[in-house]
């Protein structure tokens, strides 16, 4: 029997909203796809594009960045900067045709445990469908 592909997904979750949201999902016993490896960061704007790119080149099949909804940032403006930075990176992956769907930014608040589970499960399904990330398996990079 052929081995079923299980993706490696890296999730950068902001400490104040999305990580707490993930916590809520766990404590309310919601099913969350286990392919997501969570890295807690203090703010979504902490995630610079090199972190996302190096994840993609070093073994991740997808990268999810999650932070507070616009206007709700613990540091007031962090997620606005994160959004700009993400728009830039997304555009670059589009220009170079590097499968832009493998990266995603989502707003998840501390009370949205259910939304967290839905987003993670959906993203994991999408990435599984896309299959292994060619970028991470290329021996010429």
């Amino acid at each position: 029997m052929e081995k079923k592909f299980k993706p490696n997904i890296v999730g950068f979750l902001c400490n104040w909203c999305s990580y707490a949201g993930a916590d809520l999902a766990g404590s309310s016993k919601t099913q969350v796809d286990p392919s997501l490896s969570v890295i807690r960061v203090m703010c979504s704007s902490r995630v610079n594009s090199n972190l996302i790119l190096s994840s993609l080149l070093w073994g991740a099949d997808g990268v999810l960045v999650a932070g507070c909804h616009p206007g709700d940032c613990h540091y007031e403006q962090g997620n606005y900067y994160a959004r700009r930075r993400f728009a830039l990176l997304k555009k670059i992956t589009k220009i170079l045709n590097l499968e832009p769907d493998r990266i995603q930014l989502s707003w998840i608040s501390a009370s949205e445990g259910k939304r967290y589970a839905e987003i993670v499960n959906q993203f994991a399904r999408d990435i599984t469908k896309k299959g292994p990330n060619p970028l991470t398996r290329n021996s010429q990079t």
Partner: peptide
């Protein structure tokens, strides 16, 4: 940054 921009990012 602008508060109202790239509205499509983050909502999925």
């Amino acid at each position: 940054y602008k508060e109202e921009e790239f509205a499509e990012i983050g909502e999925q």
